[in-house]
C-alpha cells in the first residue's frame, strides 16, 4: 500500500486546470452530460429487470388489450388502431418511474453528494438522466409501435404525421420525466417515490382516452378525462396516425407540455441543488 502514498496521495501533480473560461465550461457541460447519459444507459443494459419493465411489460399490455379486453370495448373503427397511441403514452409515462427511483437511490447512496462535490458541470446529472431516460423511452416506443404493427395497427395518414406522432409521444414522456425527476429528488426515498408515482401516474394515464372512449365513463369522470393533458396528447396522436382533425388537441397538448416544462424543470433543478 505504500504505492498509494507515492502515486496518489501527494498533491504534487494536480492535473486539473485552475480556472476554466466560459467556453471550456460549456464544453464540459456537454461532455459531462454525455458521460452521465452513457453511465445511465450502461446501468439500464446491465440490469435484466429494467429491460423487462421497459420492454416486456409494454408489449404484454399491447397483447392483453388487443386480444383479451379489446373485444369487449366498442370503439369507432378497429380497436387496435384506437389502442396503440394510448399504450404508447401509458408506456412513456410508466417509464418515468425509473427516473424517479434512480434519482432517489443515487441520493440515498451518496452518489449525488459525490458528484456535487466534484468540479463537474452541475447541470449534467439531471440533464444526463433526462437524456438517457428519454432515449430509453424512445426505444420502448419504437418497439411497442413495431409490435402494434404486428398485431394489426396501421398508420393511414402518411409518413410525416407518423413521425410526428412518435415525436409527440417522446416529448410527452420527457415532460412526465421532469415531474418524476422532481418527485425523486424531493422525496428522496425509493419506496415512497414508487408509492407516490402510483398515486399520480396511474390516474392520469387510465382516466383518459387511452383505453376506452370517454363517453362510456360516468359524467363526473368525463369532466376530468376530457380536460387533462394525457387525453389531449392521445387524441392528437390518434389523429396523426389515422387522419382527422389535429389542430385543436395539438395546441392544447403543446400548451400543457410547455406548462409542465416551465413548472417542473426549474423545480427539479432546485431540488437537485438542495438535495441532501
Amino acid at each position: 500500500m505504500t504505492a498509494v502514498a507515492a502515486e496518489s496521495g501527494a498533491p504534487a501533480a494536480p492535473s486539473l486546470p485552475s480556472s476554466p473560461g466560459p467556453l471550456v465550461r460549456a464544453r464540459w457541460a456537454v461532455s459531462d452530460t454525455l458521460t452521465i447519459t452513457r453511465r445511465n444507459l450502461l446501468v439500464w443494459l446491465r440490469v435484466p429487470a429494467f429491460l423487462v419493465f421497459t420492454v416486456v411489460q409494454p408489449v404484454m399490455f399491447v397483447l392483453l388489450f388487443r386480444y383479451v379486453f379489446g373485444g369487449a370495448i366498442p370503439v369507432p373503427g378497429e380497436y387496435v388502431d384506437f389502442l396503440i397511441p394510448g399504450i404508447l403514452v401509458q408506456t412513456a409515462a410508466f417509464a418515468t418511474f425509473g427516473t424517479a427511483i434512480a434519482l432517489a437511490q443515487e441520493l440515498k447512496k451518496g452518489v449525488i453528494d459525490r458528484l456535487r462535490s466534484m468540479p463537474m458541470a452541475r447541470s449534467a446529472v439531471l440533464a444526463g438522466r433526462l437524456v438517457a431516460d428519454t432515449g430509453r423511452m424512445l426505444v420502448t416506443i419504437l418497439i411497442v409501435t413495431g409490435v402494434g404493427y404486428a398485431v394489426g395497427f396501421r398508420f393511414d395518414n402518411g409518413v410525416l404525421p407518423a413521425i410526428l406522432m412518435i415525436v409527440l409521444a417522446t416529448v410527452f414522456g420527457l415532460a412526465i420525466c421532469c415531474i418524476s425527476a422532481y418527485t425523486g429528488l424531493a422525496i428522496g426515498d425509493e419506496e415512497s417515490v414508487q408509492a407516490f408515482g402510483l398515486i399520480w401516474i396511474f390516474p392520469i394515464t387510465f382516466l383518459s382516452s387511452a383505453f376506452v372512449p370517454i363517453p362510456t365513463m360516468p359524467g363526473w369522470l368525463q369532466a376530468f378525462a376530457n380536460n387533462q393533458p394525457v387525453t389531449y396528447v392521445i387524441d392528437t396522436m390518434r389523429a396523426l396516425a389515422r387522419g382527422g382533425p389535429v389542430e385543436a388537441s395539438l395546441w392544447k397538448s403543446i400548451a400543457w407540455l410547455a406548462g409542465i416544462f416551465v413548472v417542473f424543470l426549474p423545480l427539479a433543478v432546485r431540488a437537485y441543488r438542495r438535495a441532501s
Partner: peptide, 12 residues
C-alpha cells in the same frame, strides 16, 4: 487504516 496512513504519509 493502513490505506489512510499511507495517504497521510504521502502528504495529503
Amino acid at each position: 487504516w493502513d490505506i489512510i496512513r499511507s495517504l497521510a504519509a504521502g502528504g495529503t
